[in-house]
Structure formats: C-alpha cells, structure tokens
Design a binder for these strands. Sequence first.
DNA 1: CTAAATCAATCAAAAATAGTGATTGAAATA
DNA 2: TATTTCAATCACTATTTTTGATTGATTTAG
Lengths: 300, 300
Amino acid sequence: MEIRNLNTFLKVAALQNFTQAARELGYSQSNVSAQIQQLELEIGAPLFNRIGRSVSLTQYGEELLPYARQIVSTALHMENFLKSEESLGGTVRIGVVESIFNLFMEDTIINYHKRFPRVKVELTVDATATLKSKLQCGLLDAACLIDDPLPKTEWHCWHKVDVPIVVVANPLHPLSRLDKINLEDLSGYDFILMEESAPYSINFQHIMAAHHIELHTFLKMQSADMARRMVEKDMFLSVLPYYTVRTSVEHGKIHILNIPETNQTQSVQMVLHINKIMTPQIEGFMEELRDVLHKIIDAE
Amino acid sequence: MEIRNLNTFLKVAALQNFTQAARELGYSQSNVSAQIQQLELEIGAPLFNRIGRSVSLTQYGEELLPYARQIVSTALHMENFLKSEESLGGTVRIGVVESIFNLFMEDTIINYHKRFPRVKVELTVDATATLKSKLQCGLLDAACLIDDPLPKTEWHCWHKVDVPIVVVANPLHPLSRLDKINLEDLSGYDFILMEESAPYSINFQHIMAAHHIELHTFLKMQSADMARRMVEKDMFLSVLPYYTVRTSVEHGKIHILNIPETNQTQSVQMVLHINKIMTPQIEGFMEELRDVLHKIIDAE
DNA sequence: CTAAATCAATCAAAAATAGTGATTGAAATA
DNA sequence: TATTTCAATCACTATTTTTGATTGATTTAG
C-alpha cells in the first residue's frame, strides 16, 4: 500500500479507464493493471467493476477514494513545501572581515551548504566598521567581526572566542633577535597596520600614544593576509591576530615579538543587530562558523 | 517518497537511533540507513544530523515530521477501516423460496462474494408466507419471493420479473395427448400442489373453485423441485412456475398443458420490509440476484 | 453483419529496487 | 587502553516493478 499505487488508483478512478490513466501517468497499461490488482489483493476486495470494457468503482473503491485522496494530496503538498523557498530556503547575507574570510570561510560554507542545501549565501568581505553599519541598516543579516565587546542594547553577540593580538616581524628583523622588547624599542621602525576601522590597530595606536612613542605607520590597508605576506618578505613590523600568522610562525617565516605592554586579546564574535529577526537559516550559519572557529582556534 | 520510507523515518526520528529502529521495524540496519538516504536524496536535504554516534533531526527533518505523521497515520486508519466490519462487512440475511434457491442461488452467491468479499451471507429457504413474516419482524434483511404485487405501504419491491405459471403433467399422462384442455378435464386427476403459502397454488385453487370443479390434491409440500421430480416419475399433475420445469420440458420429461383459463403469471421479486434500512450490502445482493435472474429467465 | 478498433488481462523477460550480512571506522564507554 | 556501540558502506541476493507482446472480449464503424 504505497503512495504510487494510490496515485494510480486515483487516476484510474478519475478517468474510468486503465489505458488512458497509464498514458497520463507515463506507465504501461499492463503496469496499471498490475498496480490496481496489487491494491485489490492487499485490501482483499475489488476496487473496480470491469464489465466488458467499461470501468467503474465498486463500493470498496468508493470507500478507498477519500483516504487515497487525502494521502496523495498530503504527499504532494509535502513535496511542494519541502522544495519551496518557504522550507528553509531564501538567502542569508553574511559579512566577515578579511582574516576570517581567508581562514575560516571555506569549511564554514561547505558545512553550511550541506546542512542547508536550499539556502543561498551572500558573503560580504569588508572592514569591521563598514560591516557594522551595514548590519545597522539591514543590508546584512549577520557578521563575524574581531572587536571589543559591543553594547548589548544594540547588538546580539554570539559565540565569542578570545584571540590574542600579536606584534610580528620578519625573522631577520633586528628586533627578532631580542628575547624581550620594550615598547620604546619599536620607535622608528616601519609598521604595516590595518586601516582605521580594525579595533586592534586602533588599540595599538592608543597604547603607543599613551607611552608617547612615535609610531611610524608607512602602510595602512584592509588586508591582514597581505600584511602578513609583506612582513614575511621584508623587514616590516605589523600588529595582527595570532591565528592569521600561526602557520607562518610555525614555518619560521614570521617572528612574534614579546612585548608585555602590547598584550591584548580581542573577541572573534558573531554579531546580529538587535532589530534583526533570528531565523534558523542565520542561526545555522552562526553554528557552523562557531564550530569551524573552535576547531581551528582551540586546536592552538 | 513512499509510505514505507516515511514510516521508517518516523521510527528513526522517534528513537533517535537507526539500529533500534531497524530492530523494531524488522529491517536490517543497513536497510534503514538506505531508506533514510533515499528520502534525503529525494528531498535534497539532510533529515538527520549524525554527529558521532548520536542522531538528531535537522530543521528539514523537523519540517518533514508533521507531513510524514499525517500520511502514515492516514494510511494506518485506511487499512484498519478497509479491513474492519464497518467497511462493507457484516452479515446479510436473505430469504428465498426453494425454487429460487435451487435455480439461481449458486451463481448469485458466487458473484456476490466476489463483489463483497467481506460480507457474510445467511440464507434461509422457506415458504413465502414464512419469509414475509420474518421480514416483518426483522429476522431477515431481504427476500426473493414469487408473489402477487404487494402493498407499497408495507413493502419495498425491486426488480420484478414476471414468470408464467403452468400446469404440468407427465408426458405419458392422458391429458398430455390433447392439444387444448378445458378446465373440467382436470377433474378427478391427482394433483401435487405447493403448500398453502405459495400464492400461485392458492390462485389455482381459487380458479378451480370459481368454476366449481373438484380439485383432487393428494399431496401438498414445500418443494417445487420434488413436485417436478414426482411429475417426471408418475402420472401426476402439478402447477408450477415455468422456469422450474423448463429444462425438463426441453428434455421431454414433462409436458405443459394448454389450458387458457389457468393462464397466470406471477412476479419473482425482491422484497424488503418498509422499516428496513437499505444498505449497500443488501442492495448489492439484490443486484446480483437480479442479474442472474435476467440472464437465466430472459434467455427464455 | 462483418471488419476494425479499443480495452483489460496475462505472461515472460528485463530492469530496478529493496533487502541482507559482513565489514569498517568513528565515537562513546568501561 | 580495550571494548562496545553505532551508522555507513559494500557486494550480493531476493523481490518487485515495469515493459512489450499477445489474447480474448467488447464496442464501434462501415
């Protein structure tokens, strides 16, 4: 007693004709005969009177009819619904900063797409400040930032992961040879910093200013990845989240300077504007991103 | 997307465990895996999160759940209903007179049982008067009688078929040699008649009485078939419905006397007491009996 | 009233599917 | 660490589904 049989039964009942039902359903006529016979066997009663070549429902057929209709139509609605936009479809618009994008987004998106195959993802890579303003005016659904704690009155924050911010140098850089460095030692060297909106860049500048040390920032840009590559290639200094340079450090391409005064951590956090309605689609993305973050960051 | 798969899905969802679901459903574990995978393929989305060895519904699974429940439970109700007494089951209690029983009941019951396999039939063979009284007090659902028209205020009558009543004799009987017979010629011969309740017997007696002719009824009984056999064997006369003796007449074992004054027809009719509720089961029996009657009687 | 057309049933063969048992590798438990 | 539990996978078998061709009955058309 399967849906296929009931559907065939309904067609035959509607058309009062096996051959035509077969044509419309794309079956062979003998198959339709067999399907009806199988139903009749299961029920133990005839469903159709075959008098000559005319076909009509028996009383048992009449009784089956409403049940069959109910089942087949529910199945139809189900399939329509499950393949529609209503069913966990639609689009999530996610913003991330470049470092997150480079390091965590591949796995996140692959995992997310497996879990929500029908959701389209629009990914925006931009500076923290830009992402926040886009969240505020609803151009993004959620974002993954590296920031200080945000006011709870305006933001929902999830799954915070504290990451260390480090001052890095080329291994051949004079400072790389020192075990411990004072803040003043940094004076005069060329720095590559992230543009204004990156909170850890701003914090670093504040620290230097507080100590009245001149900071020579010869290059500002958005890409942490490019900053890392620049430091790998030449005698520059930079201030970056640890996880963006971890592999380079392990391969000896980059050196972390030990400067107690600059120790800071920041939170990688997923952020939603307080006005935004949480959907399973967005929540799912958060969860996948969190899992990838933890898998990579917590592995040290 | 068949009911079997949805049922398996429900079991797995309820138990959160493939192996146990397999056990309870009597499948192998690999089969349950395959069934779920097939559903997931058809829907194009995962139904279960398999994290480690724990199983939980995905959002898509949650959405499928109510539809699956609806379909499976409707299918269950359907099967229960279709196999229950409510569904064209129960018993029909049918009464017939003996001649109908002998000549028409085999085919009627065979055909009826094909059409209503779940209905039990209780067949009562008795005299017309007895059947009518049993109908009146509800001991029978319907009956097939040979009678004069019945008052519509008390009876529902269906499918009347007029049948001739004939006076018959052994072919060697003196009267069998005459082309035409007057009513007075019957005087003094031995008659076998049906017991009081048979309306055509009563009518015949009235005709004879009206013409003041002595009717010598040496045997009264209920069985038309036995009356026929008696006439075939010895020099008796009888009054019977034509169809009960047709075969004998065709084989030359019985002769029909041509007596214009005794020409009478009676109706074979299906009768329901006015208080009785008509059911599809009873109606179906009527229809089958009618078809058999027509096939045999109308063939002349 | 015959010839042609239509229809459902039947049958043998094929294609497709459902189902199994054994194994694997991962994860939980002792 | 060893054991147990679990779902997935694989190779294989059993069963079911599906088809195409044919048949015999019934209806329609000429």
